[in-house]
Structure formats: structure tokens, C-alpha cells
């Protein structure tokens, strides 16, 4: 399960179970929608040429949800978008699994593209979620050290 917050045209969820892209597309779709932009993050098998075995995500759940909510509010203020959804995983993820899905619907595509890009870029800077990369020979909290 995890924390979930729905405010009118916004759904934000932290989840320990597999994320589903189609569910996210369906949620943002409405009869007024002319286009949907979806960002799907996936777990890559290497970092700087070094093989990654799996990732582990940890969140400060309450604050992560409130920071994601702030980002969606900023996106609504900046672009004429209709619905925004952010689903983010916590826990252990294998190669190819999905840590994050962002879906944005709008009447016209420019707003959806721009808002989706803004949301993922800002999420990576401000939302208190951490990722640990597990290698064959050790593990590293991503971005922790200069």
C-alpha cells in the first residue's frame, strides 16, 4: 500500500508494490484531454560502466508526499494541464522495474510535455527519497558524496 493522496485533479502515491503504467494513463484521462505525457523511470543495469544488481529506495513518506504535492501545485500554476499523477516506489527494485511514473494530461501537448519534464526534474532535486545502488562488491547511496 503506502501513502496516497488525492486532491481533485492530483494523485500522489508512494507504493511498495509494482507500478502500473496503464493504470496511471487511465487515471489522468478525461473526455477533455487532448494529450497525455507519461514519464516512466526504469532501473538501469549499470552506473558509470559498473554493473548494478538492484536498487533500494527509501522515503521520508510524509514529507515526500507533501513535497510532491507542492511540485504538482507549481505545475498547475505554470501550465494549463488537467490532471497530474505521481507514483513512486519504495523498497527493493530489480533491473527493469519501475521506480517512478509521472502522467500529465492536458488539452494540448505542449503543456503536458513541459509540466511532465518539470515534475520529474524537480522531484529529483527536492523530494526526500533516497536510492541505494547495490553492486556485486558493495553498495552506494546515490549522490550522497561529492
Amino acid at each position: 500500500m503506502g501513502k496516497k493522496q488525492i486532491i481533485l485533479n492530483t494523485e500522489i502515491k508512494l507504493s511498495v508494490s509494482t507500478l502500473n503504467v496503464q493504470d496511471c494513463v487511465d487515471w489522468v484521462m478525461s473526455p477533455e484531454t487532448g494529450g497525455i505525457d507519461v514519464f516512466v523511470g526504469t532501473v538501469r543495469n549499470a552506473t558509470k560502466g559498473k554493473g548494478v544488481v538492484r536498487l533500494e529506495f527509501e522515503a521520508y513518506e510524509k514529507m515526500a508526499v507533501s513535497e510532491m504535492k507542492k511540485i504538482t501545485q507549481q505545475a498547475f500554476a505554470k501550465w494549463p494541464v488537467q490532471k497530474i499523477l505521481i507514483h513512486h516506489r519504495t523498497g527493493v527494485l530489480q533491473i527493469g522495474e519501475i521506480p517512478v511514473i509521472i502522467a500529465v494530461s492536458a488539452a494540448h501537448r505542449d503543456a503536458a510535455f513541459d509540466a511532465c519534464r518539470y515534475i520529474i526534474d524537480t522531484l529529483k532535486q527536492t523530494v526526500p527519497i533516497w536510492k541505494k545502488e547495490i553492486f556485486e562488491d558493495g553498495e552506494v547511496w546515490v549522490a550522497a558524496h561529492p
Binding site: Y60, H88, Q125, V127, I129, K131
Partner: peptide, 10 residues
């Protein structure tokens, strides 16, 4: 109070 090291979600 929480200590927030560099975030790396997404």
C-alpha cells in the same frame, strides 16, 4: 526533526 542527505529519487 529529520536529517535530509542529498536526495536521489526518481
Amino acid at each position: 526533526i529529520a536529517i535530509i542527505p542529498p536526495v536521489s529519487g526518481g
